[in-house]
Design a protein around this nucleic acid. Structure first.
Lengths: 190, 190
DNA sequence: AGTGATATACACCGATCGGTTTCCTTTCGT
DNA sequence: ACGAAAGGAAACCGATCGGTGTATATCACT
């Protein structure tokens, strides 16, 4: 019994779309997606209006897991600084995986040049939420300019994930953490 | 007389490949490339072995201009810090253009998941050279850890260009410059 | 057992992909 | 003025693209 056997065809499609579009890019064919999901093309078009819609749905479905991964395990006892650093610690740990190819949402935004694409809209929303999370932490931590600090943090986040995903940088020596620490200190965040 | 009329067919192809693959992504068809260049497909395959080879050549041809754009206009009188900040000033100024879509070399690395692709190799080389340039400046500027600082700077560079290119961030208020300044200060670079 | 919904397999659509070939015109050296 | 060579237009190749139509099989429910 394969691991996908207990999932509905729709969920298997979303799973395959997320996995293959992340590994091979958004230009992956629907034929390959359906083969991977073990679902006929005909069924796919009953669940989704188009390939674009399925891609957007697959990105959206992964948002809760993505958020949970970046959230601090014990947010109550942790300081704002610890919660911010946790995000980059997770990024650094994830980046060592052989099949890490960078932040999937940033990749989608880069690959789909069209900002009106439904998947681009989902990706942009995720990025805005991350920035807003950082901003709230910066405010709680007493940063001098919370908005600026938050934008700096997403800059580092996306730069680190893109470079690690592209294979031109390694984060496992704490590069992101060190960079963020310097920025937190400079912003006067406790 | 169009602006391309005085260029050789080969140069027109390289120009069209650079422009269209930057605007539409590397998946742009050779039919469109040849139409844009005003060159027959047959001629194109006499100049280049494949679409991949032409793409790599088009990226490579733009390297000198890219370098010149980031180089300080008066490198002798400028300090290492000024030379570094000049790079990010140029990035911020370029990013306001309506047809700015991020660093083309990073985009190619993200879009072509295959690191063995000839265009990926060119792009990786460009990124390595930028990091090396930063490292040399960091050393000259007396940074505590020149290698670390250089990696932080390319992190910010790629993060800023990717986010600005994706349309999720604006750099025209000096975001990159402010971030880099904080990192230079933290590294003890004069 | 019968029925309607759901899923599959598979041929098919026009369009485009990267790449090749054929034919014809233009250009250039002599 | 002539012949070779280069270049352009377009047909053509097999493959794949996103998407549909059709006929068959499987399933739950009554």
């Amino acid at each position: 019994m394969a691991s996908t056997d207990k999932l509905s065809p729709r969920d298997r499609l979303l799973d395959a779309a997320a996995r293959l579009s992340y590994r091979d890019g958004v230009s992956v064919g629907i034929e390959a997606l359906c083969r991977e999901a073990g679902v006929s093309k005909r069924s796919m078009y009953q669940f989704f209006d188009s390939k674009d819609a399925m891609l957007a749905a697959s990105l959206e479905q992964r948002v809760p897991g993505y958020d949970a991964q970046l959230a601090h395990p014990d947010p109550r006892s942790a300081s704002p600084r610890e919660r911010v650093l946790h995000v980059f610690g997770r990024l650094e740990r994830a980046s060592v995986s052989a099949d890490y190819h960078g932040c999937p949402y940033l990749a989608v935004l880069v690959e789909l040049k069209n900002p009106e694409h439904p998947a681009s809209i989902v990706a942009r929303t995720v990025k805005e939420r991350l920035a807003e999370t950082f901003r709230a932490e910066a405010e709680r931590g007493g940063a001098r300019d919370p908005e600026l600090l938050a934008r700096q943090l997403v800059l580092v986040f996306d730069g680190a994930s893109a470079r690690a995903g592209a294979g031109v940088e390694r984060l496992d020596d704490g590069l992101a953490t060190k960079t963020v620490t310097a920025l937190l200190d400079a912003a006067g965040m406790e």
